[in-house]
């Protein structure tokens, strides 16, 4: 009997170890879709930031923390991912406050358009990178589409098992370690694909121009969370405005009204491209949907000034250790930019 128990225990352990290995093998490595790695990179740099950006692609493609540091001495991090939903931003922010106390939180408002979870693949890109905490569970619960279940997040093997027949070299190369893809949350895009005739296109007709209730509720929760943690919430709309991700005047009016009611700053940069200096023939890598690194640098410089002048970040002090870390980050940034 004793022998049988020992064999059972050993076999169970072996099965668990094999499954753990297989899990590492089959979970996505995001070698092509680098966006999937953004959220997980935060923890290596967590703490001591003056500004935290939260939102979708419009934050991680429009602001460069290295430039913000270099030009203004502002320490920042971008907690953004592909089509990051408002509640995901909320829970990421909630988690961030466990690690640090930024004085300004910048939220890009485009994601307010989504009142429901969109696609499982996007959820995965945002949620899988989060460390386990009550915030992660909250984010999963709020984000799951009908086909998903919490168990699949706890044991990603159950979700990605079918990849066992689709493995690539990357799955073995990044079995235990993922490559670093961002510069403090900024995902560098150096390509240039100028905006063409499509620039004149406007967003398609919608059924209803009211921003979804759920998004507005989470925006309000985000405001309360910031207030609770002594951070100022600043709302922005990135300057890009392609017809697919069109920012409707009706939406803008609702955000303006909300910001006024709550006493928040709201900057819509769509109409300020000239002041910012953005040239859509050179500053976008995908025909104006997102900014490339050259556009993002201009946007960062412009916004840094606003942070300095209007949000009390003119004379922030940092320790020598922090400054040294940032010097390294800035060097790394330029190394890649000028490569």
């Amino acid at each position: 009997m004793k022998k049988r128990v020992i064999i059972t225990v050993c076999a169970s352990l072996a099965v668990v170890l094999i499954l753990a290995f297989l899990q590492s093998l089959v979970v996505p490595k995001y070698a092509d879709n680098r966006e999937g790695l953004l959220v997980g990179e935060y923890y290596a740099e967590a703490g001591g930031h003056d500004v935290i950006f939260v939102g979708d692609c419009e934050v991680y493609e429009s602001f460069v923390p290295a430039v913000l540091w270099e030009k203004y001495g502002i320490s920042s991090y971008i907690r953004g991912s592909s089509q990051q939903l408002v509640w995901q931003s909320y829970y990421l922010l909630e988690e961030t406050f466990e690690y640090e106390s930024p004085s300004v939180v910048v939220f890009n408002v485009l994601a307010l358009k989504y009142g429901e979870p969109q696609r499982e693949a996007y959820n995965r890109m945002t949620l899988d990178g989060m460390r386990w905490s009550s915030s992660k569970i909250g984010a999963i619960r709020a984000s799951m589409t009908e086909e998903e279940s919490l168990v699949d997040y706890v044991f990603p093997l159950l979700r990605f098992h079918s990849r066992i027949t689709e493995l690539s070299v990357d799955d073995f190369a990044y079995l235990f370690d993922r490559p670093k893809v961002s510069h403090s949350g900024y995902l560098m895009q150096k390509g240039i694909d100028p905006m063409d005739g499509d620039a004149t296109e406007e967003g398609r007709e919608l059924l209803d121009y009211t921003l979804p209730e759920t998004s507005m509720e989470y925006l309000e929760k985000m405001r309360a969370l910031c207030a609770e943690n002594g951070a100022e919430l600043v709302l922005i709309k990135a300057p890009t405005n392609s017809w697919r991700y069109w920012w409707y005047d009706e939406w803008d009016a609702q955000v303006v009204k909300y910001a006024e009611e709550k006493g928040l700053a709201y900057y819509n940069f769509i109409d300020e491209t000239e002041e910012i200096g953005i040239d859509y023939t050179t500053d976008t890598y995908d025909k104006g949907v997102h900014l490339n690194v050259y556009g993002a640098e201009k946007m960062t410089e412009y916004f840094g000034r606003i942070l300095e002048e209007k949000h009390g970040l003119a004379d922030v002090s940092h320790t020598e250790a922090q400054a040294a870390e940032w010097r390294t980050r800035v060097d790394e940034y330029y190394k890649e930019r000028n490569r």
Binding site: E35, G36, Q83, R244, V289, H290
Partner: peptide
């Protein structure tokens, strides 16, 4: 024909 991909590379919207 105008086409815009999405940020995660998961599918385009084509007009």
């Amino acid at each position: 024909k105008t086409e815009i991909g999405d940020c995660g590379g998961l599918g385009a919207l084509v007009k």
